[in-house]
Write a protein that binds this DNA or RNA. Structure first.
Lengths: 148, 148
DNA sequence: ACTATTTGGTCAAGCTGCTTGACCATAATG
DNA sequence: CATTATGGTCAAGCAGCTTGACCAAATAGT
């Protein structure tokens, strides 16, 4: 593997990821959900299965818990999530999606499906599976940090 | 293509891109270049071939020209680029990499090669070429916008 | 048991990186 | 050669994050 090949691979990977992010965002907006940013989408993804605490969200996003707390506050204000008392820890508060939050999550999924679908039209089903398999082999396990 | 598959593909793509960005950044820092952010790397990439004007950099990064101007100012201060008079337009100024800027660019390329090389050890050369081919087919042509 | 430390969360203040708005100098257009 | 468009900077403001201080509940130490 020469350097130039590594650069080329990096460039197309970053370009594809950037475009995907942008398209998902545009698709969500087009479906009527305004004032939501990609970071909110990553938050929703973490909340989708049973909710999470502020600290867990912070770890998921790779930010401080103060930042996560502010994000949650904003999402509460906009009606996407709500804070409930934590069933096992009186200090903690469980953040869960509201019905609006679920609707927005589904919109994001549809937008993702649209964007990916456009790729499928170019590559075909078979190649898409190959792509997914390859990426799955190299993607890290941890949280998806929107870090760049 | 079902929604769930699109989500899975999106997740691994974003995870891989996030990890790559982070590793490149860490690699650049490890090679002794401090105070440089991913956005600077995207700037360097645009400057590498013959330099660019502030307006061109702005378009490349997807930000306003004021923001691009500030970024250039910072890079000048840190010694990575310099402003030269534009040979054809007295209004414009051509921003070019200094020797330090070139060194930093090479460091980023090495870091990218390291990160990609780690994937090659998992996938093998053949699969890496397949991955690159697939991604090249779906990546947009325009500037790489670090947008999320 | 009860002190001491850790952990979950918020409040407050500050910084960084971007934005919008105004403006100047040069180029392109009629 | 007057008008408009373009490249660039200065200034002010804002959004999203950080660090620092703090409180309440849980956990650990003896």
């Amino acid at each position: 593997m020469q350097n130039s090949e590594a650069i080329a691979l990096s460039a197309v990977l970053l370009a594809a990821a950037g475009e995907l992010t942008q398209r998902i965002h545009e698709g969500v907006v087009a479906r009527g959900f305004e004032g939501v940013r990609p970071a909110h989408g990553f938050t929703f993804a973490r909340l989708a299965s049973d909710g999470a605490t502020v600290t867990e969200i912070a770890a998921h996003l790779g930010v401080t818990k103060q930042a996560a707390s502010q994000i949650v506050e904003e999402l509460v204000r906009k009606g996407y999530v709500e804070r409930r008392p934590h069933p096992e820890d009186a200090r903690a508060r469980l953040v869960v999606l509201t019905e609006l939050g679920w609707a927005c999550t589904r919109a994001a999924e549809e937008a993702a499906a649209d964007a990916v679908g456009a790729w499928a039209e170019v590559l075909g089903e078979r190649e898409m599976r190959a792509l997914r398999t390859l990426l799955t082999s190299i993607a890290p396990y941890g949280p998806i940090k929107p870090a760049w």
